[in-house]
Computed example of a mutant assay.
Amino acid sequence: MEIVETLNQTLLHKNSGQNKACQLDIEVYKNIAFSYSQMENSIAVLSDMQLNKSFVFTSKTALELGLNFKENPTVIDSIWEEEILKKIHPDDKLKKYIHELRFFKFLDSLQPEERSDFSVLSRMKIKDKDDVYKFIQHRMFYFYSPFNGKLRFALCLYNIALEQSQFLSSDFLIINSTKGEVIVEDKLNYKNILSQRELEILKLVGEGFTSKEIAHFLSISINTVSRHRQNILEKLNVKNSIKAINDSLAKAP
């Protein structure tokens, strides 16, 4: 999936020790993640961009969502919590990736002292222990290193949402928690932006199929699939700069 590859290149390459290494004490941030998991019954995932590892701190919420992490924390050799991600509705999972790339680019445009004011607040659908989709609340915070100015940790918190009405939609926000303001609201309506073929490919990409598999399903060439996937990224404006965020929002209905 190109959006995941873009995120990996953005998050890991920009934090790959080009300057001096970050000296932040990881145990301090692991304790923060553990505390959230215990106080709020969250699933708390601390991702370390310098080590390309994640630490998943579990709670009873994990059992309600059909997740059985045998250790606390469970250590993953990736910044992606795949056991959780694969349970998220395919449409929401792709929007989550796009939204997180926007969040990184937004924070990257700010002065270092401003970044701690902002976080991600989302509502997404995820399968529970009975294989039924229900809404979860997802929050994400970034921690930058004062030693090299690079993003070091991302903390993701997953909780079952209080409101489960079938009339609700998924929601992806960037908020200023200091002022209690919504800064960016993802209002993209993909059906108004993408062609029918691109929507088909987007759905299959979100379900985790490779370009080769998609080409087989749709009876088209791999090159055609690659071209469509590139067009999707360009139409959703997630590739280049903070300007892409503003442009995509301007297109929103």
Rank of each mutant, 00 (worst) to 15 (best):
E5H: 10
L7F: 07
Q9Y: 11
T10D: 13
L12Y: 09
N15E: 02
S16W: 09
G17D: 05
N19F: 14
N19T: 13
A21D: 12
D25E: 09
D25S: 10
D25R: 12
E27C: 05
I32D: 06
S35R: 14
Y36K: 14
E40Y: 15
N41H: 12
N41C: 09
A44Q: 02
L46H: 04
S47P: 04
N52M: 08
S54Q: 03
S54R: 05
V56G: 00
F57L: 06
T58L: 06
T58S: 15
T58I: 05
A62T: 03
L63I: 12
F69L: 03
K70C: 01
K70E: 13
K70F: 06
N72H: 09
P73L: 04
V75F: 07
V75E: 14
V75K: 13
V75M: 12
D77L: 08
D77T: 08
W80F: 15
K86I: 13
P90F: 13
D92N: 15
R102N: 11
K105E: 06
S109Q: 11
S109T: 07
L110Y: 04
L110M: 10
P112M: 12
E113V: 08
R115Q: 12
S116A: 09
S116F: 09
F118V: 03
V120R: 02
L121N: 11
S122R: 09
I126Q: 01
I126R: 01
D128F: 09
D130I: 05
D131G: 02
V132R: 15
Y133P: 04
H138I: 07
F143R: 12
F143C: 00
F143Y: 13
Y144E: 01
N148P: 05
N148K: 02
G149P: 04
L151I: 06
F153H: 03
Y158D: 04
I160P: 06
L162P: 01
F167V: 01
D171G: 02
F172Y: 15
F172R: 05
L173P: 00
L173N: 14
L173D: 07
I175S: 03
I175R: 06
T178G: 02
E181D: 09
V182Q: 04
V184Y: 13
D186P: 04
L188T: 13
N189F: 07
N192R: 14
L194P: 04
Q196M: 11
E198A: 11
L199V: 11
V205H: 00
G206F: 08
G206H: 08
G208V: 03
E213W: 02
A215T: 04
A215C: 08
H216G: 02
L218H: 10
L218Y: 07
S219F: 07
N223C: 01
T224Q: 11
H228F: 11
R229Q: 13
N231W: 00
I232G: 01
K235C: 05
K235F: 08
N237T: 03
V238R: 00
S241Q: 06
A244K: 05
I245T: 03
D247L: 15
S248M: 13
A250N: 13
